[in-house]
């Protein structure tokens, strides 16, 4: 048993030192309480719906979200719009389809099975419209950045006047959380930019939180299912481990040796 404790303590130290270094890295970012963190973390449904609104009204004009479909908006564990709402959202987009029997491409209103409509036809077009910088696809963006949600949340609020010793080219902005502090995206949010249907005050901070929550969901659509299953799995394993431990003690009591 002694060596077992040694082993466990080594593992715990490794995990703890890991999370410590990660925590140290994150501490420079702005903090907020994310509802989806922790053992039972769940998304804030209203925040996800508001986040979708910010995405679609602000971000989507430049950033694609190519791995999501409109049907995802009505699926459990997400913003959980009603199917009618999701259908209406999908129908508000023009989707190019075809070719039809005449060999022609045509446009039609979006359906639940359609992927999110892309703002640009291709990467080159996106770059041409954005001064050479490609606005990254947002589907898995929070997982593709070291600081995760805290980084995105901070970045959206990190626009400042450049210090006097930093010179910025045309179309480049100063952001204190951006790697190298220079970013091609102009400050996307300003107070009251969107009008929330539920009456929430649309401050930059609020919109940043909502849209980042939405991005977390888009990157991890099954996060809630994962947390729920994880808790059950670990409780099950612990109970089984205890039972097996006592069975082991019983079996080994037949030989004069300690386990």
């Amino acid at each position: 048993m002694k060596s077992l404790f040694k082993l466990l303590s080594i593992i715990i130290i490794i995990i703890a030192s890991n999370s410590y270094s990660l925590a140290a890295e994150k501490s420079e970012y702005l903090k907020t309480d994310w509802s989806f963190k922790g053992l039972f973390g769940k998304f804030d449904r209203a925040s996800l719906q508001r986040g979708y609104q910010v995405y679609t009204e602000v971000c989507a004009s430049c950033h694609s979200m190519k791995y999501l479909s409109y049907r995802n908006l009505a699926e459990p564990g997400g913003p959980e719009f009603s199917e009618v709402q999701a259908k209406a959202i999908a129908a508000s987009f023009e989707v190019t389809d075809g070719p039809n029997s005449d060999g022609e491409m045509f446009t039609r209103p979006g359906k639940l099975s359609d992927k999110f409509v892309m703002p640009y036809d291709n990467v080159k077009a996106a770059q041409a419209a954005n001064g050479g910088a490609y606005p990254p696809d947002m589907s898995v963006l929070v997982k593709a950045r070291g600081g995760g949600v805290d980084y995105i949340y901070s970045l959206l609020q990190g626009y400042e006047e450049a210090p006097s010793n930093v010179s910025l080219d045309d179309g480049v902005y100063y952001n204190k959380y951006m790697y190298g502090n220079k970013i091609r995206m102009a400050a996307p949010l300003s107070d009251g930019l969107v009008e929330y249907g539920d009456g929430t005050n649309a401050t930059v901070e609020q919109m940043s939180k909502d849209v980042t929550t939405f991005l977390m969901w888009s990157a991890e659509p099954h996060l809630e299912a994962r947390h729920q299953m994880g808790f059950k799995a670990i409780v099950y394993l612990i109970i089984l481990t205890v039972l097996v431990y006592f069975s082991m003690k019983k079996i080994w009591s037949r030989v004069e040796s300690e386990v």
Partner: peptide, 16 residues
């Protein structure tokens, strides 16, 4: 049984 017990401990870390 002893390997099984250790495996279960390992699986808890794995599951985490």
């Amino acid at each position: 049984i002893k390997d099984g017990f250790a495996l279960l401990m390992f699986m808890i870390v794995f599951a985490f």
